[in-house]
């Protein structure tokens, strides 16, 4: 069994916003969740055409989840305060 090595310390984090790739229609040009986030923490992965959480800076306020037209976004309470 081999383990990955790292060149410089990277803090891992469990992110509160999850995207269901099956439902996400970012590849059709949808950017609703990215547009409405007050903290601008979501982004579209252009290679996959799917939204994802680029920065763990969430207020768990939920516009991304409520405004998503296909129900692809799930906001969890961040682990530190869950």
């Amino acid at each position: 069994m081999s383990f990955p090595t790292f060149s410089l310390a990277q803090q891992r984090t469990s992110v509160p916003v999850r995207i269901d790739d099956e439902k996400c229609i970012a590849d059709k040009g949808c950017t609703v969740c990215v547009d409405v986030c007050p903290l601008d923490v979501l982004a579209i992965d252009l290679t996959r055409g799917k939204a994802y959480m680029a920065f763990d800076e969430c207020w768990y306020c939920m516009p991304c989840e409520k405004d998503c037209p296909t129900g692809a976004v799930q906001v969890d309470i961040p682990y530190l305060l869950r």
Binding site: P38, L39, E57, C58, W59, Y60, C61, P78, L80, L81
Partner: peptide
């Protein structure tokens, strides 16, 4: 800083 230590877990919108 909220007691949880999460920078964005504030009462006010952290923006």
């Amino acid at each position: 800083l909220p007691a949880s230590g999460y920078l964005f877990g504030t009462y006010e919108n952290p923006t």
